[in-house]
Amino acid sequence: MDELTVLRELEPEVPALTDEARAAARVRLAGAVAKERRGSRSPARRLVLRAAFTATAAAAAGGVYAAVTRERGNGVRLHTLSAAQVLRRAADRTRAEGSGIAVPRGDQYLYSREVYTRTMSRSGKRTTHTDEFWISEDGSRTSRYLYDGRIVDMPPLTKHEVVSPPTEYAKLMKLPTDPIGLLRELGHADFRTEDGALSAYIDLLMLMRGPRVLPPGLRAAAFEAFSKLPGIVIQGGVVDALGRQGIGVSRDGYSIGLVFERGTCAYLGLRLEGVRGARTVGTELRGGEKYLEVRALVASGVVDEIGQRPR
């Protein structure tokens, strides 16, 4: 079973990929995800969270973000921020805040809870869902994914399987906290090329996507690494599942990106576009209805057992 089929099982509403789309997705997707089922003989395994990479490609709106700031005694002044500036501000903010989460042990679980809204483009129907994850920190225990009430358990890693980017804190500690060093350590010294930029973008999204306790400076380095990639653009206004006003940042032409709070540039979650009910005709997707999904990370932490939640 290939990795794109696994993703389809986790997100059954997304139509089958065409050969052309599948080839494009595999530029790095094949290295960013892997077999999730028991019995896989793949030498590598990556834990993949639902809907992270199953949306169809959609053009992102480029340009700049119009930000409002207040000056003492002078009312309101309008200025613009580029995608790179938003990412650098997000990096500065996360450095100042710190993670606030205890360093996990190998026998513990990394917990996260996400609330997401899905809005259909034609009908305007908007639904709200909740996902929860309990991921074994060192991969030695069963992990659990709770997708809007549907339970999926993943067996422990075998000695031949790995997670990349890693979930183990000790391994994350070894990653550089400068953006260029991080890109190179992740295997993307060619990040200025088209294929290299896409490959780096996927791996950085994976680093941000999964439940992880990131060492000091690593999240900031990841935001700054995003800013170094060519083709990073603003996606315009976004409202997350908690009603927070945000702005999207993604790679041009890619349907998945990050969401930051408007004004503060605090990281909120992910934004993605997909298609529900489409059918494949030749190399094209036809019919169906597009949707916008916005995910908000509402809780994260470290627990001792599956089913436990941080206080």
Rank of each mutant, 00 (worst) to 15 (best):
97 E>D: 13
156 P>K: 06
44 A>I: 12
22 R>P: 02
131 D>T: 12
128 T>N: 08
220 A>N: 00
142 T>D: 04
226 F>L: 12
232 I>M: 14
116 Y>L: 13
110 L>P: 00
29 L>E: 08
192 R>M: 03
217 G>F: 03
240 D>C: 13
42 S>L: 11
22 R>V: 03
116 Y>H: 15
296 A>P: 01
191 F>N: 03
219 R>H: 05
73 G>N: 12
243 G>Y: 12
249 V>E: 03
30 A>C: 01
29 L>F: 07
136 S>T: 09
121 S>M: 09
242 L>Q: 15
224 E>M: 01
105 R>G: 08
62 G>F: 07
178 D>G: 02
217 G>K: 00
47 L>I: 10
48 V>W: 04
28 R>H: 15
293 E>V: 10
106 G>A: 10
213 V>M: 09
28 R>C: 11
95 R>S: 10
267 Y>P: 08
55 A>R: 07
219 R>Y: 01
285 L>Q: 12
93 R>V: 15
185 E>Y: 11
174 K>D: 12
210 G>I: 06
76 V>Q: 04
190 D>N: 12
149 G>R: 11
106 G>Y: 06
284 E>Y: 11
183 L>W: 03
125 K>C: 03
251 R>D: 04
38 R>Y: 07
41 R>C: 06
58 A>I: 11
144 R>G: 04
104 P>Q: 12
204 L>N: 05
87 L>C: 10
20 E>R: 01
226 F>Q: 03
212 R>P: 11
205 L>C: 05
217 G>S: 04
86 V>D: 01
180 I>L: 05
280 T>A: 07
118 R>K: 15
205 L>H: 06
21 A>R: 03
63 G>A: 05
302 V>Y: 10
264 T>F: 09
93 R>W: 08
308 Q>Y: 03
155 P>I: 14
271 R>S: 15
275 V>T: 14
135 I>G: 04
44 A>R: 14
3 E>L: 12
180 I>Y: 01
193 T>A: 01
31 G>L: 14
37 R>I: 07
132 E>I: 08
138 D>W: 02
27 V>C: 03
147 Y>S: 11
93 R>A: 09
275 V>Q: 08
96 A>T: 03
39 G>M: 10
291 Y>S: 11
244 R>C: 10
269 G>R: 07
56 T>C: 08
213 V>K: 02
242 L>E: 15
248 G>S: 10
39 G>F: 08
153 D>S: 14
34 A>M: 00
263 G>A: 08
308 Q>A: 09
22 R>I: 00
270 L>E: 09
177 T>E: 05
272 L>A: 01
211 P>R: 09
176 P>N: 07
114 E>V: 15
283 T>L: 13
208 M>E: 07
268 L>N: 11
101 I>L: 15
210 G>Y: 02
57 A>H: 13
31 G>V: 07
229 L>A: 03
280 T>N: 06
197 A>S: 15
102 A>T: 12
61 A>D: 13
141 R>W: 00
294 V>P: 05
79 H>Y: 09
18 T>D: 02
99 S>E: 15
277 G>W: 10
81 L>R: 05
21 A>I: 03
196 G>T: 01
104 P>D: 09
306 I>R: 08
123 S>D: 08
286 R>M: 09
43 P>C: 07
168 E>D: 15
45 R>E: 06
